[in-house]
């Protein structure tokens, strides 16, 4: 599914990376613990999180994630968006809660993007 379709499903605002909405997303992962993302998330997954600190973008960069969706209308600060633009990581914001957003994506057929422990 394209990132643009996920944007529509979750009623997202696109915070940066408007030119990359044609990215194909095959897997999703949700966590507020960046340690869990680093430990369990496969590359190219979409990350859903409520953590808006700079580490969310560095985690997406280091773990090579496709994009980040912030839940509960959360938005990172402007300097964090600048880092995401530099790293070409699309950032979106949804009014949905983490649970709701995961449910919507799961019902749309997304598998979890976690590696087997």
């Amino acid at each position: 599914m394209r990132l643009s379709e996920i944007r529509d499903l979750l009623e997202c605002d696109v915070l940066c990376g408007e030119d990359r909405l044609d990215l194909e997303i095959e897997e999703c992962f949700a966590a507020d613990l960046m340690s869990d993302v680093l430990a369990y998330c496969r590359p190219n997954a979409l990350l859903l999180t409520g953590l808006t600190g700079v580490q969310s973008v560095h985690t997406a960069d280091v773990a090579e994630l496709a994009a980040v969706v912030y839940v509960n209308r959360k938005r990172p600060a402007g300097h964090i968006l600048d880092i995401a633009r530099e790293k070409e990581i699309p950032l979106l914001s949804t009014p949905r809660t983490l649970y709701e957003a995961c449910g919507i994506l799961r019902a749309s057929g997304f598998a979890g993007g976690s590696r087997t422990r």
């Binding site: 613990l33 340690s35 869990d36 680093l38 430990a39 600190g53």
Partner: peptide, 17 residues
């Protein structure tokens, strides 16, 4: 530390892995 998304006790094992 936890509010920043770290400090879950995964760091060193994850580095080794």
């Amino acid at each position: 530390m936890r509010a920043r998304g770290f400090g879950a006790g995964m760091g060193l094992p994850n580095m080794k892995r």
